[in-house]
Structures are given as structure tokens and as C-alpha cells.
Amino acid sequence: MSIETRLAELGITLPQPAAPVASYVAAVEANGLLHISGQLPFVDGQLMTGRLGEDRDVDYGQTAAKMCGVMLIAQIKAALGSLDRVERIVKLGAFISSGADFTDQPKVANGASDLMVSVFGDAGKHARSAVGVPVLPLGAVVEIDAIVAVKSA
């Protein structure tokens, strides 16, 4: 089954990949690895903002992480032309805007991790970091970047 078919089964429609907002590119392919710049969570064009443990809860954060994952997949497709070129999701780096007492960053990052496994199966299983930070660009609640192994053409 193609990844596109799997996305359709999951009811996921990929958005237009977000354009960079500063001096960087969305993706760089080097030595068989695709490095995707950090992606922010959007729902219906609106940025998901806030801080976990202050004005947002874990469920909100997990949804935001999933939406970052959807944007990562959109960036992968834009960079590779086909999601079937994904050999494996190697690593996700999750940055979670959170208060000093909030310690559930790994639970929040599961929103993106679970999505990758749902979409890519065993190839979606990855290494990961989940880090709490005081603030993210544009007030986003979560930002996630990725490293993806690419099948040789």
C-alpha cells in the first residue's frame, strides 16, 4: 500500500508546505538523509499557540505535535516528490513551549511520533528528543524537526 493511500485511510489531507519565515530552507537532502526544518502546528490556517502547564494542557499539546507531524510529511512530499521514497523516519526533535514545572514533554511529542508510525508503519519508528523551552517562534506551542532516510532513486 502506498503512503498516499494510507494517509487517505487515516483521513489526513496534507496542507501546502509552509514557506520558511527566515533565512533557511525547508529541507536539505544530503548523503541519503533528508533534514526537515522545524515545523509549527497549524489548524485551518491558524497557528496553535500557548505554553503547556500554563494555558494549555497535554491533549492540546499532543494535537499540536500531530499537526507539526502533518506539516513534516507535507515537507517530505514536497522535497522528495513521493512519500514512497521514505526509507525510514530516523529522528524527530520536539520542542515544547512549557512552564518550569511541566514535565510531560514526552507525552506531548507522542502526538507526532504516533502519527509517523500510523502513516509509515515500522519505518515510522524513530529516535526522538522532547525538550521543554520557554518560548517558540511566533508563540507556537510546539515545533518539531525531522531527519528522514531516503530510498535511493
Results as ranks from 00 to 15, higher is better:
Ser113Ile: 05
Lys125Phe: 02
Ala100Glu: 09
Ser98Ala: 08
Gly11Glu: 04
Leu52Cys: 12
Ala109Gly: 07
Asn31Ala: 07
Arg128His: 01
Tyr60Gln: 07
His35Ala: 07
Val70Met: 12
Ala74Ser: 11
Gly124Asp: 02
Gly50Pro: 03
Ser113Asn: 11
Lys125Ile: 14
Ile76Ala: 07
Leu72Arg: 06
Ile3Val: 10
Asp104Ile: 00
Ser37Phe: 06
Pro15Phe: 15
Asp57Lys: 03
Ile89Arg: 01
Asp59Cys: 09
Ser118His: 15
Gly45Leu: 11
Asn31Pro: 07
Gln75His: 11
Gly121Ser: 10
Gly99His: 08
Ser97Thr: 05
Ala130Phe: 13
Leu14Lys: 08
Leu10Asn: 15
Ser37Val: 01
Asp84Val: 15
Val21Gln: 02
Leu92His: 08
Cys68Gly: 03
Gly111Leu: 02
Leu7Pro: 07
Thr103Asp: 14
Val86Gln: 02
Ala22Leu: 15
Asp44Ile: 15
Ser118Asn: 15
Val86Trp: 01
Asp114Phe: 04
Val133Cys: 03
Gly132Ser: 13
Pro20His: 05
Leu10Met: 14
Leu7Phe: 11
Ile36Gln: 13
Pro17Ala: 15
Lys107Asn: 14
Gln75Trp: 05
Gly53Trp: 07
Ala94Met: 02
Gly11Asp: 07
His35Arg: 02
Asp59Gln: 12
Asp101Arg: 05
Ala65Gly: 09
Gly38Gln: 09
Pro41Gln: 06
Gln46Thr: 02
Phe42Leu: 11
Leu138Thr: 00
Leu83Ala: 12
Asp84Pro: 02
Leu72Cys: 09
Gln46Phe: 00
Met71Arg: 08
Gly50Val: 04
Leu138Met: 04
Thr13Glu: 01
Gly50Ile: 05
Val58Met: 03
Ala19Ser: 13
Gln16Glu: 00
Gly32Cys: 13
Leu138Pro: 01
Ser82Glu: 04
Asp57Pro: 00
Gly132His: 04
Ile3Ala: 05
Val131Trp: 05
His126Val: 06
Thr63Asp: 02
Asn31Glu: 07
Ile73Ala: 14
Pro137Leu: 08
Val117Glu: 10
Asn31Cys: 05
His126Glu: 01
Leu52Arg: 09
Gly69Asn: 09
Val135Leu: 03
Ile76Met: 11
Met1Lys: 06
Ser129Val: 09
Ala64Gln: 15
Gly45Asn: 07
Arg56His: 05
Gly139Tyr: 06
